[in-house]
Nucleic acid binder design. Structure first.
Lengths: 230, 230
DNA sequence: TAGTGGTCTAGACCACGCC
DNA sequence: GCGTGGTCTAGACCACTAG
């Protein structure tokens, strides 16, 4: 970390934080100061203030009324932005219990298609139980191309399985499948046989389209609803 | 429409369109011209070009590499941006068959909670079958506050049910529930009894937090997967 | 008419990647 | 050292709202 990096944050980010501070505790639909006023007060260009407010609007913290003003949005309905997968990681009380681990060659065409593997490529599979407050929350089957993981990584599975890192700068595609809980997972999830659940198939790719990792999640419907806000 | 509105589109939108045209047919990961070059060619400020490229990156059509350049993203993995609900409306071959229509007073506490209705408020309920290419795709139960709809609107149900209009400037919250297909809907959706499906509960609200409409959709899992890309 | 958000200019400097 | 994206300035004009 260099010395000059003390003021490393761009001004518009600092202004975002200032605005968030200043509206804290205020009721939704209260107007904030005008862009010009804020720019004058902070002695910055109005374009810089505008960029900060743009971002906060994008996040759903503020909203604009043309020719009228900028207002505080209803926080209850703030845009989440975070994909479902991250919900698990964000809440810190998650525990993981690895059920199975292996390196496989071609035996599941679907996985090969998803990860765009070639005939003789190998892939890693990890099956783990996700617990929240010691209650079974979901089961994740994680598939990663063997060529994406160094031998050193194999000894440090946590790093390989840091899904947040994959997702941070990537693209997430999720497909929701209704099904009855697989018999081999019913006990682990502590739900009844024949109970309907949602299996989420997630493919995380780089923006270039190269897939990183494919995850099948079987969610316990009694613990947490799958929910998104846009 | 005023005369001066011929050039009503902001420059940055026009530039977006120019860029999209210019990259058509090109392979993903091909670099586009630098911001400065585009600005010079089009004789506009670099900030204006930047704003156009910003938007295209946000849409997942381009991506940037710091200090290197801006590239064409893999279109297969383009961010959808459009919430699930709109998928139906976008594809123009959808047909709707209204199964039921009524104005109700309090008889479902959940609806009252979702729409934030008061004790003596009324709500509209419309149940309709959604067909795609004449195949049953989903059943929608649509709930709207009576006070949000004028008497004139009641004669023009299509306008009331133009969900896209509601969503365009609003916030969408969706909860995914696994369940067995309700017996009264199995035949209509042409799926077997006891088949697992996903019911999506959607609440569309204004940015101020005021709910517009609540929709329960029962999707036919055999016709189309529920899928999102972020 | 005064104030607001929305657009736009014509430059500038910086940090970083690549050669 | 050159080119890139990222940030920022100090203004300007427009269309629109509201008093």
């Amino acid at each position: 970390m260099k010395r000059g990096d003390l003021a490393a944050k761009p001004k518009y980010v600092q202004i975002q934080e200032l605005i968030i501070e200043s509206i804290e505790g205020q009721a939704p639909n209260t107007p904030i100061s005008s862009e010009r006023d804020i720019a004058t007060q902070l002695m910055v260009s109005s374009m810089t203030v505008r960029k900060a407010i743009d971002a906060l609007c994008e996040e759903g913290i503020l909203y604009r009324h043309k020719n009228k003003g900028t207002y505080i949005a209803d926080k209850k309905l703030r845009k989440t932005g975070s994909p479902l997968l991250i919900l698990e990681a964000q809440e810190q009380d998650s525990k993981y219990k690895t059920l199975y681990f292996d390196i496989k060659s071609r035996d599941d065409d679907n996985i090969y298609e998803q990860l765009r593997l070639k005939e003789d490529d190998q892939y890693l599979i990890v099956v783990r139980l996700v617990l929240k407050a010691d209650v079974p929350y979901s089961i994740e089957e994680i598939y990663i191309s063997r060529s994406n993981t160094s031998s050193a990584d194999l000894k440090n599975l946590d790093k390989v399985l840091d899904l947040e890192a994959y997702i941070a700068d990537g693209i997430l595609n999720q497909v929701f499948n209704p099904m009855l809980v697989p018999t081999q997972y019913a006990n682990l999830l502590k739900i009844k046989l024949n109970e309907p659940i949602i299996r989420v198939d997630s493919l995380i790719s780089h923006k270039t389209g190269i897939p990183y990792v494919f995850i099948r999640s079987y969610y316990n419907p009694n613990i947490m609803k799958i929910e998104i806000t846009i």
